[in-house]
Design a binder for these strands. Sequence first.
DNA 1: GCCCGGGTTTGCGCTAGCGCAAATCCCGGA
DNA 2: TCCGGGATTTGCGCTAGCGCAAACCCGGGC
Lengths: 233, 233
Amino acid sequence: MASLDRSLIAGLGPFDSLTPEALDQVLARARSARYAKDSSVFEENAEAHSFFLLLDGRIRVVRTTPHGDQVIARYIGDGELFGIAAAIGRTTYPATAMCAVDCVVLAWPTEAWADLAARFPSFAGSTFRTIGNRLQETQSRVVEMATEQVGQRVALAVLRLVRQAGRKTPEGLEIDFPISRQDIAEMTGTTLHTVSRLLSAWEDEGIVKSARQKITVIDPHRLMVISEHRAGA
Amino acid sequence: MASLDRSLIAGLGPFDSLTPEALDQVLARARSARYAKDSSVFEENAEAHSFFLLLDGRIRVVRTTPHGDQVIARYIGDGELFGIAAAIGRTTYPATAMCAVDCVVLAWPTEAWADLAARFPSFAGSTFRTIGNRLQETQSRVVEMATEQVGQRVALAVLRLVRQAGRKTPEGLEIDFPISRQDIAEMTGTTLHTVSRLLSAWEDEGIVKSARQKITVIDPHRLMVISEHRAGA
DNA sequence: GCCCGGGTTTGCGCTAGCGCAAATCCCGGA
DNA sequence: TCCGGGATTTGCGCTAGCGCAAACCCGGGC
């Protein structure tokens, strides 16, 4: 494992405003690793030996119920920390991290966290802000699940994905990683059948365009309308 | 506002293992306040001027949707910090804190947080652990809402309440604060009608006993069975 | 170029649970 | 003690969306 170049992480959220020397110190304790698409970085309930930063790729964070149902907690994008719930008290990962595409990550041993946090307060702050944001966002999802119906939830999920991972194309905004109907279903608490029906309907209306593992939003505005209004035409 | 006695908070989670002097310093920046049942300690979207510790009572944390639906995020019990998402980056409260009964709270100005956290690392740690726990728990609720059906969700909610606020009575375990069918509905994403029907059915089977704003669990074991098994007899 | 397998679409029937409405109950105040 | 209003219960009809099943489509490996 070669020595890591600080340009990898300079300017990324968690390491914002660290001096070059500080960056080197932070990197000194990290190792980098590649994971192939569909491999997991860590598994639910496994002992939390490391925490991670995603350098490149896209990671799906999944929980599995005792019944075997899967629920996607969130997608992680470039520059985001993940596996950090572990850094805060937890000794075990609460979910599985699956690579939606080939990924490059940095990993720090869990023990390093307290030390880094103490030495670089802005790093600690950023971590906590991240966790705070996720709590916030997760609570919004609870509210959604409790009050909106499937159509609205799916619309919201697609909009969120586009915002997080939208790539501009001539057609519209395309989600830049492969995502199946099943995935959307697991994000919104419904079935792939229902998602498929909804996307088909929206495609007929020219709101989205979808293909195998691919979704492009043509008319975000009308999708927002769907996500807000109860019932639909 | 008289000076506060450190015995109020000695030994409480967040202030565990602080020296008497440290406790005094922490208390020096707090003020205590009483809130009547059904009054709010803070409102959603209001500016986060303070964070709080509940000394006595029970607080319902509620979010309201643009459509006017309410969702109960959680209940806060004695000795718990609340309104702290604000202490971590947020400048505004993400939810409303309503008193389910008369409450006594300690309040610190938001500005004091960074200072206290820096001076008393164990306080900071405890806060973060609390937030971590809540993230965890909130995610579990997302999973529940996505995969279980109402009967199971309501059973889980009741069990959780009993665990958190159960008082032993000759009848069984009684939830020690007034809680309506509507409240349970807002915790589980259903309607008061459905909750009422479920409780009635369970009462017929001798699993729970319920009255106006009151629920007593007679047979926790059978309730757990309901919460785990799909479909029911 | 052909075949295989996973992703997707679509039809169909069914039911969990919502929405509405009405009756009842019960606590607390006058 | 009587009364008003919120909490609860219960009936009834309806539909959103699930579950099952079958067909289809398409990309990649051989």
